[in-house]
Design a protein around this nucleic acid. Sequence first.
RNA 1: GGCCCGUUGGUCAAGCGGCUAAGACACCGCCCUUUCACGGCGGAGACAUGAGUUCGAUUCUCGUACGGGUCACCA
Length: 482
Amino acid sequence: MNEVRTRFAPSPTGYLHIGGLRTALFTYCIAKKVGGKFILRIEDTDQERYVEGANEVIYRTLRAVGLNWDEGPDVGGDFGPYIQTERRGIYKEYAEKLVELGGAYYCFCDKERLQELKAVQEASGVNPMYDRHCRSLSPEEIKEKLDAGVPYVIRQKIPLDGETTFHDVLYGDITVENSTLDDQILLKTDGLPTYNFANVVDDHLMGITHVVRGNEYLASAPKYTLLYKAFGWEEPVYIHVEHIMRDKQHKLSKRDGDASYEDLIAKGYLSEAIVNYIALLGWSPKGEREIFSLPELIEEFDISGLSKSPAIFDPLKLRAINGEYIRMMPPEEFAKIAEPWIRQTCKGDFDIARIALLLQPRTELLSDIPAQVDFFDEMPDYDLSLYENKKMKTDRATSLEVLKKVKPVLENITDWNFDAIHDALFNLIGELGVKNGYLLWPLRVAITGKQFTPGGAIEAAEIIGKKSTLERLERSLKMLEA
RNA sequence: GGCCCGUUGGUCAAGCGGCUAAGACACCGCCCUUUCACGGCGGAGACAUGAGUUCGAUUCUCGUACGGGUCACCA
């Protein structure tokens, strides 16, 4: 009856890929669904790839989406430290222990020898593998080299024959011949562990019960099983998830421009929509609903819904989900987040809340906004063909005629508001005995200069005000008369 | 190349031996409507392929094709 403990263990590269974020999300859900703990561990054993400030990117992103960790570098916990470089002594200790247990051995081969070996193997068409040169060194030889300070690594001692079965929740049992497994390096010359070793040690020491990780680790998984066996430790439950792809051939990568959470936010996607969408990539809920908040996701999440095949990232679907989230927002909240986007192309003194209200049902992506509101400040130049509309039965001549009649009606409105404009215009429509669109279509064109606008003629007139409406109308009238 | 894994409409996907093979996005049509959206209704579109097992295969087994992963003192 152990407590469920899961971890997200990113490397600080300064960039949180949405595939990684999705892994974190699944990991988080597994723990939270049963009231377990979610742990953050930084895997920074690669000194050469260290990036300044990268940890903050990870913290910031996870917090922004609501994946709060119970234990981690900055919040502490009983199983720390949670940054691998601060645990270096631990790995050395366990590597040496494994040597004693017979599961590992010292290796003094230098890189040159290894390189040569590899070259020869490749040339002869053999799979490159360490030739186990140091595996049979005598204790005396080892001691001698150690005392002499010869640089060394510690390698895993893979059984020479037999086979190893590794179990994954999604893939079931995967059995491989031990002879195909390399005596991989566990502890590097610099005293730091390799990923494969650090993972096993840390997961065990931190009491991790479930591991969700990318499919790229599936091939090395049997070596983990061997490591756990050699230590006499119990293996966690493993769940390997497939990659998020750009297309059938390529993984979604940094250079695609929308592979990271921050890229997406910059493009105007909502945090909640991103989380919701990526959850749906490679996982499917039981029912037909697909809009879930994070708490709902936790409730709904089930490992059995995970998929074994790669999923292509579809910006269009994300966009649609984003639109759903926008429509679900309280209008005031939408107005708040929309304002900076509106202000990009609409600087004038307008009723922003009113504009936001019109925008809300027609915005899927916040970055769509600027182009929608660029006519408020100033009417763009437009082509007179906009007046021609088959369905409204309008053309330049009918438009000119009707707009001439509209002008005095609008001039007579004293209290400029939606209802007043609406009533005045519909009065006129009644008098003329025409269809609404016959009058309203040309009017909208005349004062906005656009084919599509958020809202119709009345809304546009209301927002830009009486003075501007009449000026624009006058200008359009002149264009039509010319 | 060796080893491992995958393959249902354009995309995400449900399905777990018997179904007219769900649903969503995208697409098309209609309705609503002062444009565009929103909303509503409807439509087109899929089990990679060949054997085998079975009364019956999308579902199980094997082969083939295609795709991916992995073969580092990177994670």
